[in-house]
Amino acid sequence: MDDVDRQLISALRHDARASLSDLAITLGVSRTTVRGRIERLRQSGEIVGFSVVLKGDAVRDPVRGLMLIGIEGRGTDRIIRQLNGLSAVRAVHTTNGRWDVIVEIGAESLEDFDDVLARIRRFDGVATSETNLLLSTRKAANG
């Protein structure tokens, strides 16, 4: 992947519906080059798809946060299965460092959010946790 590929991906992240002509002008290359690069990036697996973010999706979770979880023993796989079973869990990430798992949570209210946290803290093997509320999102991973 070269600089033009990186610029193309950046432009697509900004506006995945941009026309080939607009992308070509932005990158200073031909439409054929843009089309070929997009196809090559798709075939190589660098670009795995395109998505649409609906207004309803953006406001679905008025209360959102990240819960960082420390797990004792070898219960990580079991705890991840339990987390994936909770409707309020939007994503589960394994990580290195102080925390074993980072969980993205979305809820309708602070009370609902607190209930989810309490439920997760009761999972057998959850040794410690820290939670941060998300105040605003300036750039979403899929946007």
Rank of each mutant, 00 (worst) to 15 (best):
2 D>M: 09
2 D>V: 10
2 D>E: 12
3 D>L: 15
7 Q>S: 15
8 L>C: 01
9 I>C: 01
11 A>M: 05
11 A>I: 05
12 L>C: 02
17 R>M: 12
18 A>T: 03
20 L>C: 05
22 D>E: 15
25 I>R: 15
28 G>E: 06
29 V>D: 00
30 S>H: 05
30 S>T: 14
33 T>P: 03
34 V>Q: 00
39 E>L: 13
41 L>S: 01
41 L>F: 03
43 Q>D: 15
44 S>K: 12
46 E>I: 14
47 I>D: 00
48 V>C: 05
49 G>D: 05
50 F>A: 01
50 F>N: 02
51 S>F: 07
52 V>T: 14
60 R>F: 14
60 R>I: 05
61 D>P: 05
62 P>Q: 07
62 P>K: 06
62 P>W: 04
63 V>M: 02
64 R>I: 10
70 G>L: 12
70 G>R: 14
72 E>F: 05
73 G>F: 07
76 T>R: 15
78 R>W: 09
80 I>A: 08
82 Q>D: 13
83 L>Q: 02
84 N>E: 15
85 G>T: 10
85 G>L: 05
86 L>F: 12
87 S>L: 11
87 S>T: 10
88 A>V: 07
89 V>T: 09
90 R>K: 12
91 A>W: 10
94 T>Q: 13
94 T>Y: 10
98 R>N: 13
100 D>M: 04
101 V>I: 14
101 V>Q: 00
104 E>Y: 07
105 I>T: 01
105 I>A: 01
111 E>A: 10
111 E>F: 07
114 D>L: 09
117 L>T: 06
118 A>P: 04
121 R>W: 10
121 R>D: 14
122 R>A: 13
122 R>L: 08
122 R>S: 13
122 R>C: 07
128 T>E: 13
128 T>P: 02
128 T>V: 08
128 T>N: 13
130 E>L: 14
130 E>I: 09
130 E>F: 09
132 N>R: 11
136 S>A: 15
140 A>T: 14
